[in-house]
């Protein structure tokens, strides 16, 4: 083994800064994706056919094409078509947010439809209006199915976020590559960056487990 960790020491602050850069657009993407995803899920369980169709086609499109392609299309095609010079950050947030919303909408829809139909009927039979039934009866039960799956989606998004390195955004991944190119040694910086990703994902997983434990208290 021919590892020399001492050489990357001066670059460590530069790479650590990447954590924040990555987290910044991951968090914005998650929030953005969650909001759009919730709206799409409401379309899917609602009774308006055109909205349902739209949400289904949307989901199928974003799940059916590579994420890197979606990113490229937003980053490259938007300026070409509209003349608007879109920043890597905005491209990344749009691509990841829109992509994630497709998965999130499916997670929420599945979580809601996994709630026993008898719950809806019992609430209806008591004269509970639809909106109130959703908020008080269905969603609290659906959350038990939704939150663990949602946490997985956030973990996936965090890892896949490394794809933004391809449009020159200076995220954690890109910084590892930059350091590698400077040193003519790729292994150490990549390994270092890899450990950071792993750490981030571990934190998210622990958070997920904690939330799950809190939710299962009622049973």
């Amino acid at each position: 083994m021919n590892l020399d960790w001492s050489q990357i020491v001066p670059y460590i602050p530069f790479m650590l800064e990447g954590i924040w850069v990555t987290l910044q657009f991951v968090i914005v993407s998650i929030v953005f994706g969650f909001i759009i995803g919730t709206v799409l899920a409401l379309f899917k369980i609602g009774s308006l056919k055109p909205l349902r169709l739209f949400a289904d086609v949307y989901t199928s499109m974003f799940r059916g094409t590579p994420l890197i392609l979606q990113l490229m299309i937003i980053y490259l095609a938007v300026p070409q078509l509209t003349g608007y010079d879109i920043s890597p950050f905005l491209s990344a947030v749009l691509a990841f947010g829109l992509n994630s919303s497709a998965y999130v909408s499916e997670i929420i829809r599945a979580g809601i439809s996994a709630v026993d139909k008898g719950q809806t009927e019992a609430a209806m039979a008591l004269g509970v209006p639809y909106r109130q039934m959703m908020i008080d009866i269905i969603l609290p039960q659906a959350l038990k199915n939704i939150l663990p799956a949602l946490m997985n989606e956030f973990i996936t998004l965090t890892k896949e976020s490394a794809i933004v390195s391809t449009i020159g955004y200076l995220d954690l991944m890109r910084r590892g590559q930059v350091v590698g190119a400077n040193l003519y040694r790729n292994f150490e910086p990549l390994l270092f960056v890899g450990l950071i990703y792993w750490g981030l994902v571990m934190v998210l997983s622990l958070l997920g487990k904690w939330v799950e434990r809190r939710l299962s208290k009622g049973d």
């Binding site: 008898g118 719950q119 009927e121 019992a122 609430a123 009866i137 039960q141 009622g218 049973d219």
Partner: peptide, 10 residues
């Protein structure tokens, strides 16, 4: 009243 109760479990 239903065969399978359908109480609100939460």
């Amino acid at each position: 009243v239903f065969q399978h109760f359908h109480l609100f479990p939460h």
